[in-house]
Design a protein around this nucleic acid. Structure first.
Lengths: 219, 219
DNA sequence: AGGCTAGTGACAGCGACTGACACATGACAA
DNA sequence: TTGTCATGTGTCAGTCGCTGTCACTAGCCT
């Protein structure tokens, strides 16, 4: 509610506000640092709070849960993608619009993240998410919530009602499925860079159509 | 490890064994009953244990977590589906094999479930899962684990290596995505019957191909 | 019959999270 | 500048999911 808006509308945030920002950033960085260093489950909220020098209660005033801290940066990327999608020209077929939106948003998301935390930290966090059952579960649930929102955007583009025509949800679900496979393969590989996941995603989106119509014998 | 195997190999389960079975079944039914009656989050493990007349500690000896109890029946359905998939003739294209396997397995899963808990309870539980964030998250994670296993089955059928060729994972992910959309729409509707979800799934699987190639104007 | 073992209850403890209350410190008006 | 007030914070107590430990008891096996 008052993240970036306030910064822009208010000329000087005031001392109180700045202190809050600093505390929240410190908590976030401490949390992500600990998560990637010793694992999500093995870091307690008390440790995060102590690393920043505040009480555990204060941590929970900034983040509704330990989980929320882990996905704070991911939320940035999501809204980044949504914005890119909404800017696609209306004439584009749905799947193509989705494809262009991800690839485009990955072109610029790096800088936005870097303002919050070191990019490399975010990348390493991805591996932690993928390998921590509780986080992976949360990630998937968040992904389906995002998909619901995307489906509505697609439906509007095509002048359809999400509840009457299943096709918007279907394309978006397929798109999301391809993204999940991509994330999985990417995070398991060696090259954990934005360029690498971009390339993988493009390749997978190219293959998903042909893969559906078996048979595969003709390679 | 000793669920169905033991029952079949041993002629008489012995008094000790039967008592265990009864306790586990009682715990399961009490849990599902309470989950559907007053919601998952609002039922404590203590309540479940007390309803059966055992200690909380005993509940955790039968179920690794409160969550596990909620998905106990779902696991049955999963292995049922996997069995059906493995029986599909090798010549069938992947997506068709998957389609036939779900539809077939839904033809017979009802009876298998009824032996454990009332079928209607299981159906109502589905709505609880879909509307409880923590359970939905767990469900999605379990689903992707299942998908990984399915991908391996498909890969073997086609003589491919899952790690070298992304196509098995891609088809399976698309299939899983369609199933998720189906579950979602089904659990939100009025007709929560096996027949209804069967029909929905078939319809969605028919539509997913055409939906990918935009445009949809020529509906 | 008697020793062995597996299932259980009781208890203590950890970690995520919440509510209540009291205090202190910036914000703002007089 | 000062006094009031709102707001961020620490402390404390408590709930709930979950785990380790230990002693006990009831089935099992010879």
């Amino acid at each position: 509610m008052d993240t970036l808006e306030t910064v822009r509308t208010a000329p000087r945030p005031g001392l109180r506000e700045r202190k809050k920002q600093r505390t929240r950033d410190a908590l976030l960085r401490a949390a992500l640092g600990l998560f990637t260093a010793k694992g999500y489950e093995r870091t307690t909220v008390d440790e995060i709070a102590e690393a920043v020098g505040v009480s555990q209660r204060t941590f929970f005033r900034y983040f509704a849960s330990k989980e929320e801290a882990a996905f704070f940066v991911a939320r940035l990327a999501e809204s980044h993608f949504l914005a890119a999608l909404r800017e696609r020209p209306p004439g584009e077929p749905p799947l193509q619009a989705l494809r262009r939106a991800v690839l485009d948003s990955w072109d610029t998301i790096g800088e936005a993240i870097e303002q919050l935390v070191p990019l490399e930290l975010h990348m390493r966090l991805y591996r932690v998410i993928e390998s921590t059952p509780a986080l992976l579960a949360a990630h998937l649930r968040r992904a389906t919530e995002l998909e619901e929102e995307i489906a509505r955007v697609i439906a509007r583009r095509e002048g359809l009602d999400v509840d009457a025509d299943p096709r918007p949800r279907l394309v978006v679900a397929v798109f999301g499925a391809v993204m999940r496979v991509t994330e999985r393969i990417w995070s398991a590989g060696d090259d954990v860079s934005l360029a690498a996941i971009r390339e993988l995603a493009a390749s997978h989106l190219d293959q998903v159509g042909p893969a559906l119509v078996g048979n595969w014998r003709g390679k």
